[in-house]
Computed example of a mutant assay.
Amino acid sequence: MPSHFLAAPILPTVPKARDLLDRLDNLRWDWQLGIRTRGVVATTKPDANHYATMGYRFVGRIVDALSLGPDDVFVDVGSGRGRVLCCAARRTCRSVVGIEYAPDLCRDACRNAESLRGRRTAIAVHNGLAESFDYSRATVVFLFNPFGASTLDRVLEKLRADRDGQPLRLAFANPDASQDDVFRRHSWLQPFDRWEKQIGGAEHGVAFHHSR
């Protein structure tokens, strides 16, 4: 038998096979929870990044690391179709809130919130600008890189003003160098953990902070 037949792959390469298994796992979770959250959606808003999802298992790891309790108000900034909202709402906390600029994504998130199986906490979705939202009740904030450094700076300043010294925990997934610089300038926030991409199974880098 010619040697090139021996070298020809019978199955997808390991990374491709892993990607396929991840997609199937996310489809299974969507079906199990009774929601539809997949897809990538571009945005025309300046300084905004396109909507994309991260894997359910990784979302669960982040939510677990934020240690939600019954008195927490969880806010997802740039909540898209609501995958993270739905995962958080299957924990017991005071409320789960999404902020999303795109009306179509807000409508999808509201439908998913209504159809979610296993919900323990109510979900509210707000259509608007993240830098204009009232964060006075927020105790835990999650962001999956929804916008660039300029908007992030304004949102963190709004968080500082609205919380007015009250405790806050925050996770920012997939940060770049410019966004890390913004966090360093906001000295009212203190980093307490950081996951690097592909280390320990991390799908994305995640920076965790809490208020001083």
Rank of each mutant, 00 (worst) to 15 (best):
residue 76 D to R: 04
residue 117 R to P: 00
residue 63 V to C: 01
residue 19 D to T: 06
residue 181 D to S: 14
residue 35 I to A: 02
residue 63 V to D: 02
residue 165 G to K: 09
residue 24 L to W: 06
residue 177 A to G: 05
residue 208 F to C: 06
residue 15 P to G: 05
residue 12 P to I: 02
residue 5 F to Y: 14
residue 23 R to D: 12
residue 30 D to G: 06
residue 152 L to N: 11
residue 103 P to I: 10
residue 82 G to Q: 07
residue 63 V to M: 00
residue 51 Y to Q: 08
residue 198 Q to W: 12
residue 137 R to Q: 15
residue 91 R to C: 04
residue 61 R to F: 00
residue 134 D to C: 12
residue 30 D to L: 06
residue 111 R to D: 11
residue 19 D to I: 06
residue 197 K to H: 07
residue 150 S to I: 13
residue 2 P to G: 15
residue 106 C to D: 02
residue 207 A to Y: 03
residue 169 R to A: 07
residue 41 V to N: 13
residue 28 R to P: 02
residue 190 Q to T: 15
residue 31 W to R: 15
residue 143 L to Q: 07
residue 185 R to S: 14
residue 82 G to F: 10
residue 109 A to G: 06
residue 95 S to A: 15
residue 165 G to H: 09
residue 42 A to T: 13
residue 31 W to Y: 14
residue 195 W to Y: 05
residue 170 L to D: 03
residue 202 A to W: 00
residue 57 R to T: 11
residue 64 D to W: 11
residue 194 R to K: 15
residue 95 S to T: 07
residue 57 R to E: 08
residue 206 V to R: 00
residue 120 R to A: 11
residue 131 E to W: 13
residue 45 K to T: 14
residue 160 R to L: 14
residue 20 L to F: 14
residue 210 H to Y: 09
residue 72 D to W: 09
residue 178 S to W: 05
residue 91 R to Q: 09
residue 139 T to R: 00
residue 18 R to S: 04
residue 86 C to L: 11
residue 116 L to N: 03
residue 48 A to S: 12
residue 15 P to Q: 05
